[in-house]
Computed example of a mutant assay.
Amino acid sequence: MQFASDNSGPALPAVMQAMADVNIGHMPSYGGEAPMEEVRDRLRALFEAPQASVYLVATGTAANALALATLSEPWQTVFCTPLAHIHTDECNAPEFFTGGAKLSLVGEADMMTPEDLSRAIAAWPAGDVHNPQHGPLALTQATERGRIYTCAEISALTQVARDHGLPCYMDGARFANAVAALGCTPAEMTWRAGINAVSMGGTKNGCLGVEAVIFFNPENAWEFELRRKRAAHLVSKHRYLSAQMLGYLHDDLWLKTAQQANARAAILEAGLRDIPQVEMVFERAVNMIFARLPRATHQRLKAAGAVYALYEGPLENGPKDEPLMARFVCDWSVSEAQIAQFLEIARG
C-alpha cells in the first residue's frame, strides 16, 4: 500500500525498453544523438510550437532553477506562491543558479490570484534602485496541494505579468496530470495561455529521471544551453535521457499514465469520503489527496504497512480521535486492489 509519492514508483516498461533499445553500439553524446532530434520533433508537435527550443535534464530542480535563471537577472525577484516547490523544496537552488535573484511570495498557500500578483508586483516599485526589480512569474501546475489552475486562470495571471513586461514560467513536474485533469492540450495550458517556458516532468509519471524544458521563444535557447553545461547538467550519455522521453511520449503514454494515476486517486478519494471520520482538506484535482483521518486510523494503517506522508502529528501520542492531515499520492502503478485493501483497513 504505497501512497507516499509518485517519485517512489517503478519506471514504465515502455521507458525501460526504450533505454534498452538505444543501449547498442556508439552514438554521439551531449544531445547530438538521433533520438534527441526525434524528441524535439515530437515535443514541438505535441505543443504545436514548431520553433520551440527543447532540452532535457535529469531532475525537476535543475529544470526549474536553470529555466528561471535563463528568464531572470540577479537583481530581480521571481513571483511565486509560499508553497511553490521552488520555494519550499529546492534548497535555494533557484536563488543560487540565478546568481541571487530573490523569491517574492504571492498569495497565502499553493495558488495565487491576479489580484494577489498585482499587489505583490506593486510592493516593489519599478525603477527604484534600492528594490529588487521585477522578474518572472513562476506557476506550479499541478500545485503542491494537488490543485490546478484552469487555462483561463493561467491566462489571467500571465496577463498581469505581461502588463508589467514579465516572462512567465510553469513548473510542470506534474504537467501530465494537470493536462489529463483539465482535458486540454499542452498548447492551451502553456503558450496559448501566455506561458513563455515550461518544464514537462517525466520522473513522477513513470520515467527513471528526465524532465523536458521547453522555451517557446527561441532567443532563450543559447543561454539555457550555457547554463545547463556550467551547472553540470549536460549529460554526456544523453541518449539515455532521450530514450526515456521517447518511450514516455510514444503512443501518448505520458497522458495515459497520468489519466490512470488520476483515476486511481479518484477511487481512493471516493472511498475515503465514505468514511464518516475522514475530512477532505482540498478538492482533489489530480493524483494527490489531502485528508484528515483520526490518529487511531493512521495508527492502524501504518501498523498494516501503509506508506504515505503524515503532515500532522505525532502519530504515537495524543487523542485517538484527533484528526491528522496526510497526503496520499497515486502513481501509474497503484492498483485498485491496493486501494481496496487500504480502505478496508481505514474503515476498521
Rank of each mutant, 00 (worst) to 15 (best):
P218V: 08
Q76G: 00
Y240M: 15
E37T: 04
G194Y: 07
L324E: 13
F215A: 10
E344C: 02
H250K: 15
S72K: 14
A18C: 00
E115M: 09
P167A: 10
T70Q: 14
P10K: 15
P35W: 04
L310F: 03
I214Q: 13
G32K: 03
E225D: 01
Q133H: 11
G31E: 01
M288G: 04
G348I: 02
A326K: 00
I339V: 15
A232H: 13
R147F: 02
A263I: 02
I154S: 11
D274I: 00
L241V: 05
E223D: 07
H164S: 08
A49S: 11
G201P: 05
E108I: 06
A187V: 05
A101D: 09
D252H: 09
L315V: 01
C207T: 14
L315T: 02
S8D: 13
A263M: 06
N64F: 03
V15F: 03
P294T: 07
V57C: 10
S104V: 11
T158F: 05
E144G: 11
A263V: 02
Y311G: 11
S242T: 02
A93L: 07
I86C: 12
Y55N: 13
C91D: 15
L234H: 10
G271D: 07
W332I: 00
R119I: 01
A197S: 12
P218T: 08
V307G: 00
A340H: 03
E225W: 04
V334H: 06
L105D: 10
V278P: 01
D128A: 08
L241I: 07
R44E: 00
A193W: 03
T61C: 10
E279S: 10
A309V: 11
L246F: 03
H250Y: 05
N205V: 02
L324D: 13
F96E: 11
A326V: 09
V278E: 05
T98M: 12
G31C: 06
K102C: 09
V213H: 08
A152G: 11
F47P: 01
S72T: 06
A18H: 04
A197D: 01
P28N: 13
G201F: 02
D6R: 15
